[in-house]
Amino acid sequence: MNIFRFAGDMTHLISILVLLLKIYATKSCSGISLKTQELYAIVFVARYLDLFTDFISVYNTVMKLVFIGCSLAIVWCMRLHRVVRRTYNKDVDTFRHYFLVLGCFLLALFVHEKFTFQEVLWAFSIYLEAVAILPQLVLLQRSGNVDNLTVQYVFFLGAYRAFYILNWIYRYLTEPHFGRWIASVAGLVQTALYADFFYYYFISWKNNAKLQLPA
């Protein structure tokens, strides 16, 4: 464990807690893409299959349970909670996310570390996570100005993978034979997808104005 990875995990945890806070405090999920939340639930279930077979550390196991639990709870809340689900606007959340699932799975069949059930699903979860934010970013652009908690959620979600990139650089420099090319390349793509969001986030923060993404 290094400080970059720990900062990344904490930033990721904060993003999920901010989202839970927004839904719980406002009893509303307006501005949140259910499709992105579903993709994240698939990412965590597909990636943490080793939860019961490989024990890494208490921290690792606890965080996996928290991530799986929270992502499933958010999807449950947006689909089934009697108050929250009425605030979900499916007319604006129209990204065809199943194509993302199919594309990432096909890519994982060809590009993986080892052709085993667990490794193919691990690569699938890495690719899917890189593009999982797309429905949410599209929804943000469509819905113009959104509430601050949603913006903070996306910001922390983008920042966590940026910390992970520093973590991979650090591990590459300090650990012999450290090569996580699949995760590193996908992590770069994932962070690049946030580039314009980060730019407009910084502009709105500098001008102390609300975030305005160009339509």
Binding site: R5, D9, D54, I56, N60, E119, W122, Y164
Partner: peptide, 10 residues
């Protein structure tokens, strides 16, 4: 075959 290191990252 090549030993794939366990995925110790989240």
């Amino acid at each position: 075959g090549r030993i794939v290191p366990k995925h110790d990252e989240l």
